[in-house]
Amino acid sequence: MTTAPFGAQDRLAFLLSLVPYLLDRGTVAVTEAAAHFGVDEDEVRSAIRLIAVSGIPGETDSYGPDDLFDIDWDALEIDDRIELTHAVAIDDSPRFSAREAAALLAGLQYLSALPENHGSESIATLSRKLATGASSTPSPVAVATRAASEALGPIRRGLTERRQVEFDYRDARGAVEHRIVDPLRIDSEDQSWYLRAWDHSRDAVRTFRVDRMDSVSVSDRPSLGDGSDIRLPDSLFQGTPDDLTVVLCATPSALPLLGDFVPDGSRPGKSMDGMVRVSVRVGHFHALKRAVCGLPALVTVESPEEAREAVAGWAEQGLAQYSDGGRG
């Protein structure tokens, strides 16, 4: 997961969190504290050095030794271990802010769509605890969810028990094929769920839409690898070398709507008419024609001719359903 670097507020949150953790632990290795908080070891070392010289202004408006935190400096310098030997002012974990609580609450709301959390009491209990632990009413952010596909159940079991999973998969062309895969990761984007898996018939990592699967079952066969040797990129769909290049003409506001077709960070050129032209690589035209038909007047395929025809044909077949007087 990519995260932005720590700003001053993040550092303050870390300092306020590190103190109660250290008081609770007694003594802890820098490596362990870094792993526990999910931050760099250097971030931990610089935080502990700052804590060690911080404190409260004393009677004479200066900071006396008893007014400061203290640490075992030898332990830090020699053994790379932390031990707070004196603490001032704070000793407990801080409360959540309204927005921090809201972020977790809405996240939990979203996760309640998963089959294993469906109707789960623990989510409700957790939500109440989060609200209690916030220093003011959690911010009004909410996410509506509908139960995610039951197929996630067996997929999840295959993933945790490291077993192969089988299913009938209807690909973007509409062809149904039986697939046997080693599940690697379950991804989602809002209400769409995906499985990334090692596909045995393709000998490659593939991304599957869970709602295109049927008859999902966990096999008795173990997954061949544990997946640790495969690095999964953040974006769900990757181009392959034999992909086709398609040139799209789009209004700038429509670019985000093209999602994974347009890789993050690509900077398309703007033309005189305010439209942008962007080259995208696709394995076939099936997903593209759907996306373009859903963005009428906002996105047009310029080339190649085959891609234009694929889009035109899809729209034409759609229109043909209404020929019984739908027109006009």
Partner: peptide, 8 residues
């Protein structure tokens, strides 16, 4: 926000 909540 959620990163800070996790630190806490």
């Amino acid at each position: 926000e959620s990163r800070r909540a996790i630190l806490k």
